[in-house]
Design a protein around this nucleic acid. Sequence first.
DNA 1: TGTTTCATGTCAGCATTCTGACATAGGTTG
DNA 2: CAACCTATGTCAGAATGCTGACATGAAACA
Lengths: 152, 152
Amino acid sequence: MKQDGAGVDLETSLGYLLKEASSVLRSAMEEVLRPLGMSVTHYSCLELLAQRPGLSNSELARGAFVTRQSMNVLLQNLEREGYVTRPAEAAVGKVLPARLTPRGRRSLEKASAAVRSVEVRMLSGMTETEQSDAFRSLQSMIRSLRDDDDGA
Amino acid sequence: MKQDGAGVDLETSLGYLLKEASSVLRSAMEEVLRPLGMSVTHYSCLELLAQRPGLSNSELARGAFVTRQSMNVLLQNLEREGYVTRPAEAAVGKVLPARLTPRGRRSLEKASAAVRSVEVRMLSGMTETEQSDAFRSLQSMIRSLRDDDDGA
DNA sequence: TGTTTCATGTCAGCATTCTGACATAGGTTG
DNA sequence: CAACCTATGTCAGAATGCTGACATGAAACA
């Protein structure tokens, strides 16, 4: 089942490995969030709101790496179920700042702990130095890809 | 727009950064593959087949990080359009080994070059040493997440 | 040998996300 | 001031991927 050919070479490609890591992380998060009846995007939205109250729908979308349309349907659900509140009308412009309700905050607590445990497990085999090196590497990759994307 | 709170702290979370990097990489790949009329999964399938001819549908699915059902519809399209061939009946068992046609190989060439250029751009700011360190870090994260997943 | 377990290919239905489009608010620039 | 450009929220339709289910072949095992 192993026969190296030529070209990109999936075995040694950092891009492929990045996709794999992201996939495994997502699976692990889904696994711990499922018992709480929460999807990854669902959790991401609540976590973003906890750390930056008043984010708009579009800002939440960018923070969770989905389109603002997708975030909008999620937000409407969360609002209907009482996890999030948004003013009926914008105080200024069209931006509707969203905030967690007490219920939203409560439901986030367990999820946040569960996700934190996944991250701890992910980093369990790495030293502090290795972790900060990895952090810088990822930041460098992001910057390199984005600079040529928006900038040029 | 910045007000650090408590908890997971998205600004310093390696998990969040990993998701961000993966998202940016995917966007960059989509951007260069779109002119070729090819999606990321589409490309992944062809690249896997080029490097490991005879992979089955299920193996391709695992390699592209989608379900075997999703890969199946893609494979059927690729087969209908003449990029891939599969035997009508399995020589042994139910496994149908897939292979690229000359047309598939030709269409992959441009895509593979485009994707390689994205990867080069992504790594442009890193030394060889940093790259292999990042490689090891990602492998470590994957292993840590998987070991507790399947193994325990 | 018979049974159980597991992986595969495939069909159907569902969920989630995306693309396209529109109206509107605000800043920018002539 | 007016014309533009950008960003936002939102609706509708399309695409993509997933879950559930089934039959079948192979391997493991009693």
